[in-house]
Each structure stands twice: as structure tokens, then as C-alpha cells.
Computed example of a mutant assay.
Amino acid sequence: MTGLRLNRCHYPVTALGPGVRAGIWVQGCSIGCSGCVATDTWPSDPATEVSVGTVLGWLASLSGPVDGVTISGGEPFQQPEAVAELIAGIRAWAADRPVDVLAYSGYTLSRLRSRAGLSRLVDACDAVVTGPYARNRPGGGWLRGSANQVITPISPLGQARYGGEEPEGPRLQVGVEGDRVYLIGVPRRDDLDRAAEALRRAGVEIEEASWRT
């Protein structure tokens, strides 16, 4: 199977789409939006590569419900072959169940549509959130970091889940792996610093933070 540069997987995710979701963050992004909350996903490190089959095996091992899969990063559309194989595997695993695939991209939809391979990858998703993060344009809503970003439903399932008024849900959730704490979601301005202060009061000191550059 194709190799995928992977930052991490997490389950359950409730802050990046409706329902209970599996989250997959790819490694590597050359866009480098100012104010990005995930600068740790920028380096395209070959050492992070795993097979797509490994990620699909993790997905198949989940014992709880999965209403959708959110693919973020990093920049998924800079690994189109691997991500296309991943989505095909998700479709095969989900069979006839209504499991939606939501993908994030720092590219605009028009740019993705201008390249045949990337346009096909868009069409493989149920919905996409596109556009670079713009720290001077707050108010993006639950699933968008800034107001310039756009949610586009692609499939009938995507239309049903993302085509109406933007849904609301939890902004942030916490994931822990060893001595690393992950804040998952699309924060509003200053949310992360408030979360860091809450962790400090709870006795958790943050030595390095991916949103501080």
C-alpha cells in the first residue's frame, strides 16, 4: 500500500464534525499560514510515513461508533495519492453505513478544482473545508478557523450533514499521549491560551505549544 506521512490519529473526535468521529492528521504542509495552531504538522518528515493499510487497520480496530472521518493536517491535498487510497479504504470499511469523510485544505476550492488529480480527490470526499487560515478574519464558525474559509458539501450525505446552517458543537477537546497533550478542534482567538491557563491551574505545565511560534 501507499505510504502516508502521518502526524497522529485520534478517537473519539467530537470537535471536527457532527457525531462521533475518527480523526486523521497528516504530516507535512508547505502553505504555512500565519497563526496556524498546528505548526508541528508542517515539516514533511519521511520518518513519519506509515502505510495506508496501517491507518485503515487502526480505523477497523475502533470498538465504538464512527459517524464520520475527519482528515486534516498538515495538508492532505499535498499527499493526494495516499489520501485517495485512504478514502477508498474508508469507503470499503464503512460499506453501506453513513460514514462521512470531511477533509480540510489550506488551498481554495478553485485551486483544487484546477488540477484534475486534486479535483478527483475533492469528489471522493463528502464535504471539504477549504481556504487558508487568516488570523485577521475571525468568526469562522464551529468548523472554520477564519471567516474566509468555506464548507462545501460534495455528496448527498455531505449535503445532508453540511449543506444547511453550519452546525454547532464543542470547540475543543483534549487528547493525551504520553507527556503530550493535544487540543483538538477549531479554536476561536485566544481559546488556546485560555485552555493552556486552565491546564496550568490543574497542574499541567506546557513547555512547548504548536500554536506559539
Score class of each variant (00 low, 15 high):
residue 162 Y to W: 00
residue 201 R to P: 02
residue 200 R to C: 01
residue 209 A to Y: 09
residue 196 A to R: 14
residue 76 P to F: 07
residue 99 V to G: 02
residue 150 V to I: 15
residue 131 G to A: 04
residue 178 G to F: 08
residue 196 A to C: 14
residue 138 P to A: 11
residue 81 E to D: 14
residue 175 G to F: 02
residue 14 T to D: 02
residue 213 T to N: 08
residue 15 A to R: 09
residue 51 S to D: 07
residue 96 D to M: 10
residue 20 V to K: 15
residue 135 R to L: 11
residue 118 L to F: 12
residue 98 P to F: 13
residue 178 G to L: 05
residue 60 A to H: 05
residue 6 L to K: 02
residue 202 A to P: 06
residue 76 P to S: 07
residue 140 G to H: 11
residue 97 R to W: 11
residue 122 V to L: 12
residue 47 A to E: 13
residue 58 W to F: 14
residue 172 L to V: 09
residue 199 L to F: 13
residue 105 S to M: 09
residue 186 V to Y: 00
residue 67 D to G: 06
residue 54 T to K: 01
residue 79 Q to A: 06
residue 154 I to N: 10
residue 80 P to Q: 03
residue 140 G to K: 05
residue 128 V to G: 08
residue 48 T to H: 06
residue 111 R to V: 10
residue 105 S to Q: 03
residue 10 H to L: 12
residue 91 R to P: 08
residue 15 A to H: 04
residue 159 Q to R: 15
residue 137 R to Y: 09
residue 132 P to Q: 14
residue 136 N to Y: 13
residue 26 V to Y: 05
residue 129 V to S: 00
residue 54 T to C: 01
residue 104 Y to Q: 09
residue 148 N to L: 04
residue 128 V to N: 12
residue 192 L to W: 08
residue 86 L to C: 10
residue 100 D to Q: 07
residue 188 R to P: 00
residue 60 A to G: 12
residue 146 S to A: 14
residue 48 T to Y: 04
residue 194 R to V: 12
residue 118 L to Y: 10
residue 154 I to K: 06
residue 60 A to R: 13
residue 18 P to T: 15
residue 185 G to K: 09
residue 113 R to A: 15
residue 3 G to P: 01
residue 18 P to C: 14
residue 136 N to F: 13
residue 73 G to P: 01
residue 93 W to A: 15
residue 98 P to C: 13
residue 37 V to E: 05
residue 14 T to W: 02
residue 124 A to P: 04
residue 203 G to T: 03
residue 2 T to A: 13
residue 169 G to D: 06
residue 150 V to T: 14
residue 82 A to T: 02
residue 93 W to D: 09
residue 172 L to Q: 05
residue 165 E to I: 12
residue 83 V to H: 04
residue 14 T to K: 03
residue 85 E to I: 01
residue 187 P to A: 01
residue 43 P to F: 11
residue 90 I to Y: 03
residue 137 R to Q: 15
residue 96 D to S: 15
residue 99 V to D: 02
residue 129 V to T: 08
residue 37 V to L: 07
residue 106 G to Y: 03
residue 97 R to N: 14
residue 170 P to L: 07
residue 36 C to S: 09
residue 149 Q to M: 10
residue 85 E to G: 01
residue 104 Y to P: 00
residue 46 P to E: 00
residue 58 W to R: 10
residue 42 W to R: 01
residue 166 E to W: 04
residue 125 C to D: 06
residue 124 A to Q: 14
residue 30 S to H: 11
residue 49 E to A: 09
residue 103 A to C: 15
residue 23 G to A: 15
residue 31 I to D: 02
residue 71 I to V: 13
residue 160 A to V: 01
residue 132 P to M: 09
residue 35 G to L: 04
residue 133 Y to D: 04
residue 206 I to Y: 00
residue 151 I to P: 07
residue 94 A to L: 12
residue 114 S to L: 07
residue 167 P to K: 05
residue 78 Q to E: 15
residue 113 R to I: 04
residue 119 S to Q: 05
residue 4 L to Y: 04
residue 108 T to P: 03
residue 13 V to N: 10
residue 98 P to Q: 14
residue 197 E to S: 11
residue 144 R to H: 08
residue 80 P to R: 03
residue 45 D to W: 03
residue 75 E to H: 06
residue 75 E to G: 05
residue 96 D to V: 11
residue 16 L to W: 01
residue 213 T to M: 05
residue 59 L to S: 03
residue 54 T to D: 06
residue 148 N to R: 10
residue 79 Q to T: 09
residue 85 E to N: 06
residue 46 P to I: 01
residue 180 R to Q: 13
residue 27 Q to R: 04
residue 151 I to Q: 07
residue 106 G to E: 10
